[in-house]
Design a protein around this nucleic acid. Structure first.
Lengths: 138, 138
DNA sequence: ATGGACCTTCCCACGATGGGAAGGTCAAGG
DNA sequence: CCTTGACCTTCCCATCGTGGGAAGGTCCAT
């Protein structure tokens, strides 16, 4: 099948399929006489694997590792689990960072009257006018 | 003062100061006879404002708006608050998305033995071998 | 005068994705 | 047979904010 059909059936855009090939995440596809890429079922499976891993937020580099383990019949599930847990830990760090930002902003916004007057603790905080310590800021 | 001192005193790298000038976030600095950029206290204040807003996760475009409001003595705090709340809402969306990813991964990892055997629900999920619905996936 | 610490501009890279141009190929219908 | 439209190819550009580094000019202290 051509790249368009592989894209449709895997849920990975043709653009990204070419990109994944370029960076060596998937093997270069066989080419027909016309230069078109040829895909088989196994390629679609592989692309679906990549898509699902991307949907779970794994980076392309991590997916490279996961693909190796997927095709390794003698893999230890320990190795897969470790990758997953490291990723979950990274997500947790991101979540906590964003949560701290959100809370800082909500804290400031709660003190802002939000009317027609110019006085605003948000602007004052950004301009460094407030000497008082803000939670989550140091 | 030169850009190096402005960078040190504002906490914004010289590289980024030039970038902010290039994209019009800050006005082009005055130049000395040698072509060096000249900065004054007011410029350092402005840079600090930008840095703090970046630390709170505001995009450069949003900071553009905030800077306008900062220098507008007749601003309505309502406008500032709105920008902050929109940002907080966006952060919330990001947080929820990441939390869903993390939970999906932890759910899979919890069912992975993590030993020397190859069987692994994580790999099975990614390869589409499981027909069972996963929470948070549809 | 020499060296080192500055400064300047310009280009490249990141990560993953999309947009689009320019040109080749194929299949269906007139 | 020819046209049309839907494919395919490669190549370049943009995102967003940041850093790295090269090549070259400037300034100051020794």
């Amino acid at each position: 099948m051509n790249i368009g059909e592989a894209a449709e059936r895997s849920g990975v855009s043709a653009k990204m399929i070419r990109y994944y090939e370029e960076i060596g995440l998937i093997a270069p596809a066989a080419r027909g006489e016309n230069g078109y890429r040829n895909y088989r079922e196994a390629d679609v499976h592989r692309l679906r694997f990549v898509r699902r891993a991307r949907e779970l937020g794994f980076s392309v580099e991590r997916i490279r590792d996961l693909l190796k383990l997927w095709s390794d019949r003698r893999r230890a599930s320990h190795d897969v689990k470790k990758i997953a847990l490291v990723h979950a830990t990274a997500l947790n760090a991101d979540i906590e960072k964003l949560t701290a930002l959100r809370d800082s902003i909500l804290h400031l916004a709660a003190r802002c009257h939000g009317d027609e007057r110019p006085e605003c603790p948000i602007i004052e905080d950004l301009s460094g006018e407030t000497a008082s310590a803000q939670p989550g800021r140091h």
